[in-house]
């Protein structure tokens, strides 16, 4: 089933990137029948308006697929999950990075974030899982970080280990999240802003097109 009409449609409605991945290997048995992951990305910081837009794009995908008789499960952005709902329990069975890498939209960088060739980590993601037999894009199998160690050097908590991600070893622990979390909670108490964001801002891929503006 050709996925282009859906991709074009979502892009015409404002999506920056749309990809379709075969995510079969990443699924637990509760959702094994939903083996296509539609990765939707917006080239915006994650805020309320971004979440609203992502939710709208997910809604459009679900409507598009349902109208053709397929099943879907929308996995909302990580920061938009209502804890008291039962369905929220299923969301953690699947992560947006899997859909993104399987759809060929990027790899997981040394910084543990999804990195896209064009936009780096400056993307906000949402996923729709479906059983529609959409043609899958070619996945990204290996990290393209190369020798770059900027995020390793600049991480103030020393959490980034500098290892390479690979699709064959998706659960490898690239970042010592306990160190990162400890720094976040310190920053939270200091000025109420937990995220330092160095691992995004120093990444050459995230700086694409930004370098000139900043006057180097």
């Amino acid at each position: 089933m050709n996925a282009d009409p859906l991709k074009q449609y979502l892009k015409s409605e404002g999506a920056t990137l749309v990809g379709v991945g075969d995510v079969t290997e990443a699924l637990s048995k509760e959702i094994i029948h939903l083996n296509r992951g539609i990765a939707i990305a917006l080239n915006r910081n994650l805020n309320r308006e971004t979440i609203r837009l992502l939710a709208r794009l997910q809604g459009l995908s679900v409507a598009w697929l349902s109208a053709r008789g397929y099943r879907n499960l929308s996995i909302p952005p990580d920061s938009d999950r209502q804890k008291d709902k039962l369905i929220t329990r299923l969301y953690k069975l699947f992560c947006h990075k899997t859909a993104a890498t399987c759809s060929g939209l990027g790899w997981v960088g040394k910084n543990g974030l999804l990195i896209n060739r064009q936009y780096g980590s400056r993307l906000s993601w949402a996923t729709v899982l479906t059983n529609a037999p959409l043609d899958a894009d070619e996945p990204v199998r290996e990290s393209e970080c190369g020798d770059c160690v900027l995020c390793v050097m600049h991480c103030p908590s020393g959490a980034v280990k500098g290892d390479h991600w690979s699709i064959s070893n998706p659960r490898r622990k690239l970042v010592a999240y306990d160190k990162c979390a400890a720094l976040k909670s310190r920053r939270q108490t200091l000025d109420g802003k937990p995220n330092c964001g160095f691992c995004v801002t120093v990444c050459p891929y995230s700086r694409n097109g930004k370098r000139e503006k900043a006057g180097k």
Binding site: E30, I31, R71, L86, I87, L90
Partner: peptide, 8 residues
């Protein structure tokens, strides 16, 4: 229906 539908 499958588990996701049940939960929803």
């Amino acid at each position: 229906y499958f588990v996701p539908e049940i939960l929803m």
